[in-house]
Amino acid sequence: MKLLYDFFDYASITGYDENHTEYSIRLNAKHSIYQDHFPGNPVTPGVCIIQIVKELVSENRNRRLVLKKIAKVRYFKSINPVEYPVIFVSLTVADTDEGDCNVVATVFSGDVTFTQLSMALGRMG
């Protein structure tokens, strides 16, 4: 599954330093996923938020990464793509000596925090 340029797209990228980047992304409310999740009630699937963060880190580090471990992901509020067509992802990435990336991310819009993620991504295979 690849969601970038299909389910979501970049609106802007702000790099604070090598390890801290803030993205604003635009959700595609017309995507077929929203017709099935759920019929008549579009909600961004929690797993797609994890996937979006994985793809943003992969782009950020310019290599394909896989999810190895979730320390914790907390969903505070669901994201309706019509109500929130543009959302923000604040990303902090720490590279380990083994070539993994430890990622802390917050998905938000203004004062509203949707999701907080803390997870480890690693190389493919």
Binding site: K68, K69, R74
Partner: peptide
């Protein structure tokens, strides 16, 4: 009823 994920913890792939 609709169920949504509230939290994921210590999940290893």
């Amino acid at each position: 009823r609709i169920g949504v994920i509230g939290e994921i913890k210590n999940l290893v792939i």
